[in-house]
Simulated assay, not measured.
Amino acid sequence: MTNKIVVHTTCGSEADARRIARHLVELRLAACVAITPGVLSTYHWKGAIEEDQECALTIKTRRDLFAALAAELRKVHPYEVPELVALPIVDGSPAYLDWMDAELQPPVELP
């Protein structure tokens, strides 16, 4: 098990996705954000079933940065309740994992 995670969110436009991605990378809360446009989402919202085209964002970061990343994402995300799901990176290419560390903020001590 590594200390790396992938955080998933979606948003309603490519412009919002690009803005969020750039913001998180500039703050070094994300080493990389991959944007996948054209995702069709079906969900319950305020008593109705909705279906929308969205962009999926795959955010690569470390576990110790999750709280700061989540707080920042909530500030800049246009949704009332943005998706915010973190999944562990169990293993990976050592070179890629080292690159992630080099691109992220220094480690934060977890409580």
Score class of each variant (00 low, 15 high):
residue 26 E to H: 05
residue 84 L to S: 03
residue 85 V to Y: 06
residue 33 V to Y: 05
residue 66 F to T: 12
residue 68 A to W: 08
residue 81 V to C: 10
residue 56 A to C: 08
residue 73 L to W: 04
residue 82 P to Q: 11
residue 33 V to S: 08
residue 80 E to Y: 00
residue 70 A to N: 15
residue 72 E to V: 10
residue 47 G to L: 01
residue 39 V to I: 15
residue 40 L to F: 04
residue 31 A to K: 00
residue 35 I to H: 01
residue 31 A to G: 07
residue 69 L to P: 10
residue 63 R to L: 12
residue 64 D to T: 11
residue 85 V to I: 15
residue 72 E to C: 11
residue 58 T to R: 08
residue 69 L to C: 05
residue 28 R to D: 05
residue 34 A to T: 15
residue 75 K to G: 03
residue 51 E to K: 12
residue 30 A to S: 13
residue 50 E to L: 04
residue 83 E to R: 02
residue 34 A to R: 04
residue 65 L to Q: 10
residue 49 I to G: 04
residue 69 L to K: 00
residue 78 P to M: 07
residue 44 H to L: 13
residue 51 E to N: 10
residue 36 T to R: 00
residue 84 L to P: 04
residue 45 W to R: 02
residue 26 E to C: 02
residue 83 E to S: 03
residue 48 A to F: 01
residue 41 S to P: 06
residue 25 V to T: 09
residue 54 E to C: 07
residue 64 D to S: 09
residue 36 T to H: 12
residue 29 L to F: 09
residue 66 F to L: 13
residue 81 V to N: 01
residue 57 L to A: 02
residue 73 L to I: 14
residue 60 K to E: 12
residue 35 I to Y: 02
residue 41 S to L: 06
residue 32 C to S: 11
residue 88 P to W: 01
residue 47 G to P: 02
residue 71 A to N: 05
residue 67 A to Q: 14
residue 87 L to N: 06
residue 87 L to W: 13
residue 82 P to L: 11
residue 30 A to R: 00
residue 26 E to S: 05
residue 60 K to A: 05
residue 78 P to F: 06
residue 53 Q to A: 12
residue 78 P to Y: 11
residue 41 S to I: 07
residue 62 R to C: 13
residue 65 L to K: 07
residue 51 E to V: 14
residue 68 A to T: 12
residue 78 P to N: 10
residue 67 A to D: 15
residue 38 G to C: 04
residue 48 A to Y: 01
residue 69 L to W: 03
residue 61 T to D: 13
residue 73 L to G: 07
residue 64 D to M: 08
residue 25 V to I: 15
residue 60 K to Y: 07
residue 40 L to M: 14
residue 76 V to N: 00
residue 66 F to N: 08
residue 49 I to K: 03
residue 66 F to M: 08
residue 46 K to E: 15
residue 43 Y to V: 03
residue 89 I to W: 05
residue 74 R to W: 00
residue 33 V to W: 02
residue 77 H to A: 10
residue 29 L to Y: 09
residue 32 C to D: 05
residue 35 I to R: 01
residue 88 P to A: 11
residue 71 A to Y: 02
residue 64 D to F: 13
residue 32 C to L: 14
residue 90 V to T: 14
residue 77 H to G: 09
residue 42 T to K: 03
residue 39 V to F: 03
residue 28 R to H: 09
residue 39 V to S: 06
residue 67 A to P: 02
residue 55 C to Y: 03
residue 87 L to Q: 10
residue 78 P to I: 11
residue 44 H to I: 11
residue 33 V to F: 10
residue 40 L to Q: 13
residue 78 P to Q: 11
residue 67 A to M: 09
residue 86 A to W: 07
residue 82 P to N: 10
residue 32 C to R: 10
residue 33 V to A: 07
residue 59 I to H: 00
residue 40 L to S: 12
residue 66 F to D: 08
residue 71 A to H: 03
residue 60 K to N: 05
residue 38 G to H: 09
residue 84 L to I: 13
residue 37 P to Y: 07
residue 35 I to T: 03
residue 58 T to A: 09
residue 51 E to P: 01
residue 45 W to K: 06
residue 71 A to D: 14
residue 41 S to R: 04
residue 63 R to I: 02
residue 83 E to A: 13
residue 87 L to M: 14
residue 75 K to P: 00
residue 54 E to N: 05
residue 65 L to D: 04
residue 38 G to Q: 09
residue 87 L to G: 07
residue 39 V to G: 02
residue 27 L to E: 15
residue 74 R to E: 14
residue 81 V to M: 06
residue 72 E to P: 04
